[in-house]
Design a protein around this nucleic acid. Structure first.
Lengths: 219, 219
DNA sequence: CGGACTTTGTGAACGTGTGAACGAGGGTCG
DNA sequence: CGACCCTCGTTCACACGTTCACAAAGTCCG
């Protein structure tokens, strides 16, 4: 059990905090050139959370605030970027070039933010060879080669549900340790691989649950 | 403060449980015609969670299991569908027909699952009028009309970040009480509106955080 | 230079979610 | 018909996350 040890702060950063850091980062970027400092109150407002939570979250990164003043925006940005690993690029492979995969491949926003789409893969021979920008879709059989050639760090699965587990296995086998799954199915990965999922059908069903049981509950 | 009161069970269903119900539902559908009954152990395996958690979650819906045997798949499916509000359709409007919005509009999977895409809206005059299947993109100014005409229950926001809050406000104003936000920004809605978000950039950053601090932590 | 004011950082209380353990209920088989 | 076995449903203890409240630490102004 190694230590996580993010920054000068030292202690382990809770999952819930990690999930909020990118939100803070975005808020900071929005007010970056204008304001030199920001208070936990302002950040909380902009990120839609409680101010105490902001302070506690930031304290895990180390103490970069000045009492009576707030946080130095640039300094905080710098450390937050480092904590989130945004000082380097993380090349991404998209596996499954259907509707969604193609949309993600065309979406330019990733590359500019440190997650360049470096490879596209599909199992369908009629799709293999298609161009997207300056990428050509490669065949799924070549996945391992593609991963090592393009130095892939993150695998994005946009295949149908049936293929997802096999793709995940292949990605893990090829050495990918971070996976983002859009396929509507549960996939299993080894302990040391990070897996996040985005499941539209599930989100819809959660929404309709709350709408049906309309009451106080939100979220 | 009204009661949620889902089913015969009666007590309030925790958020964490609600978020897992769709997963169970999917697992059940997979083994539906073949197996008449399923144990909490099997369901847990298939949904990737702990068996005790499955039993506790299902007990919130009421007690549909038979000790010594397991759960009757069809019976459980029936009640779960009812709890999730899947006995009726929930028409969806997609606001913002860019890369992602168009991909979702083309994706057929929603309609067949009770969430028909009933309207498309965009603010760009060059996009308004475009056809997707038998839908024509309407102008954002007509949002309120579109919502009432098509009986919209759920709003999906796929606009750029800058427009998201205004769109959310308009949706709420038009009476939509469930919103799924894909725009990379935090949006605020009244208490009685359900809001879920899907944020690709955030997911990526969470993955790179864990990859950078590689250790035991997964997720 | 001192006192008032602001805002951080954290300790403590609370609530929610998780996982193990176990009793109770029901089926099954001799 | 009785004993055994299986699996649910619930209870309990604990880990995690959130929020409050306040002392500590720094700035600003007279």
């Amino acid at each position: 059990m190694a230590e996580q040890e993010g920054a000068p702060g030292g202690r382990r950063i809770p999952d819930a905090t990690v999930a909020r850091l990118p939100i803070y980062l975005r808020s900071l970027l929005e007010l970056s050139p204008q304001t030199p400092t920001v208070s936990s109150e302002q950040l909380a407002e902009s990120a839609g959370v409680n101010a105490a939570k902001v302070r506690k979250d930031l304290s895990y990164l180390g103490s970069y605030g000045t009492r009576g003043v707030g946080y130095d925006v640039e300094y905080l940005l710098e450390h937050m970027r480092r904590a989130l690993g945004m000082t380097q690029d993380w090349p991404v492979v998209i596996v499954g070039i259907g509707n969604l995969g193609a949309a993600l491949a065309n979406y330019g926003g990733f590359g500019s933010r440190g997650y360049p789409v470096a490879a596209l893969v599909d199992a369908d021979p009629t799709v293999v060879g298609t161009r997207f920008g300056d990428l050509v879709v490669r065949h799924a059989d070549e996945l391992a080669d593609v991963v090592s050639e393009a130095q892939i760090a993150i695998g994005v699965i946009t295949t149908p549900a049936g293929a997802a587990q096999a793709v995940a296995d292949a990605l893990v086998e090829a050495g990918v340790r971070s996976i983002l799954n859009f396929a509507p199915t549960v996939i299993a990965v080894p302990e040391d691989v990070s897996l996040r999922k985005v499941d539209l059908a599930v989100e819809m069903q959660i929404l309709s649950f709350y709408q049906r049981h309309a009451s106080t509950s939100s979220r």
